[in-house]
Amino acid sequence: MADPEHLFKVNVVTPDGLIYSHRSSIIDMRAIDGQRAIMYDHTPILTPLAIGDVKVKRSREMSGRVDHIAVNGGYLEFSNNVATIIADSAERASNIDVSRAQAAKERAEKHMQEAREKHDQQSLKRAEIALRRAANRISVYNTRK
Rank of each mutant, 00 (worst) to 15 (best):
R58W: 00
F8I: 03
Y20A: 09
Q122A: 13
V71G: 06
R100I: 00
D53G: 09
R92M: 13
R30L: 14
I51L: 04
D97M: 05
H22C: 05
H68L: 00
E91D: 14
H42L: 04
N142G: 04
K110E: 12
D28E: 14
N80L: 11
G73I: 03
N80P: 00
V140Y: 04
A127L: 05
G17P: 06
L18D: 05
E106N: 13
I19T: 11
N72V: 01
E106F: 03
E117L: 14
A135L: 14
K118P: 02
M29H: 10
D33K: 05
L7Q: 15
D28A: 10
R116H: 09
N81T: 03
V54W: 03
M1S: 06
Q102T: 12
D3T: 05
A103G: 02
D33A: 10
R58M: 04
A50K: 11
I85H: 11
N95D: 14
S25N: 11
Y75P: 11
L76E: 10
M29P: 02
Q35S: 14
G64H: 03
D41T: 04
A127K: 03
Y20P: 02
V13F: 10
E91W: 01
Y141T: 01
H119F: 05
R126I: 08
A108N: 09
I38A: 12
Q113Y: 11
P15V: 03
F78H: 11
L124P: 07
R36N: 08
P44Q: 12
V98A: 14
K125Q: 13
R144I: 02
K9T: 14
G73H: 09
A2I: 10
A108S: 13
